[in-house]
Amino acid sequence: MQNSNSNIASQIIYEDNHLLVINKKVGQLVQGDKTGDESLLDSIKNFIKIRDNKPGNVFLGLVHRIDRPTSGLVIYAKTSKALSRLTQMVKNREIKKTYWAVVTKEMIPTSQRLVHYLKKNEKNNKAIVFPKPTEGAKEAIL
């Protein structure tokens, strides 16, 4: 998905010397994959290079991912030290992802849990959802 520099600028929620938080739109690819589509990572690097008039490569590390069909906040580290610390925070679950769904009809009560099983299809780089345990599928709880 092609992004102009003004588009990236409008998606920045927070930025300092160590990190940058982007409001990712539905359909944007967080990091490169086998589709070859332009990723947010590459778009942001290009944006920073032009905006800050940086010679050479721009360091930008991806702290976590969210799926392409999902919108939401994504954290990128602007230094290797920040990347290491933020990645550890995600691993320790000090930084948590929360997914919200917009529905047209009333959903299950919030006190219940929705459990499905996800199995990745490597050929098309997508996950298949199963309602019950399936060989090779991982449990996904909402």
Results as ranks from 00 to 15, higher is better:
1 M>T: 14
1 M>G: 12
2 Q>T: 11
3 N>V: 08
6 S>C: 02
7 N>Q: 15
8 I>P: 06
9 A>V: 03
9 A>Q: 11
9 A>G: 01
15 E>Y: 02
20 L>R: 00
21 V>E: 04
25 K>D: 12
25 K>N: 14
26 V>L: 01
26 V>W: 00
29 L>V: 11
30 V>Y: 05
33 D>W: 04
34 K>F: 13
35 T>Y: 00
35 T>G: 02
39 S>Y: 02
40 L>S: 07
43 S>P: 02
43 S>V: 01
44 I>G: 01
45 K>M: 11
55 P>R: 12
55 P>V: 12
63 V>H: 02
63 V>R: 04
67 D>W: 04
67 D>F: 05
73 L>T: 11
75 I>G: 03
76 Y>C: 06
76 Y>V: 01
76 Y>D: 03
77 A>L: 03
79 T>W: 00
81 K>S: 14
82 A>N: 01
83 L>A: 15
84 S>T: 14
84 S>G: 10
93 R>Y: 06
93 R>Q: 14
97 K>I: 03
97 K>D: 06
98 T>N: 13
100 W>T: 14
101 A>Q: 10
102 V>N: 13
105 K>T: 13
105 K>Y: 07
106 E>K: 15
106 E>S: 12
107 M>E: 08
110 T>W: 07
110 T>Q: 10
110 T>S: 13
112 Q>H: 10
115 V>K: 09
116 H>L: 10
117 Y>G: 08
117 Y>W: 15
120 K>T: 10
121 N>E: 10
121 N>K: 03
124 N>L: 11
124 N>Y: 11
126 K>V: 09
127 A>D: 12
129 V>W: 01
130 F>W: 03
130 F>C: 03
133 P>H: 06
133 P>F: 07
134 T>Q: 12
136 G>P: 06
138 K>L: 10
138 K>Y: 06
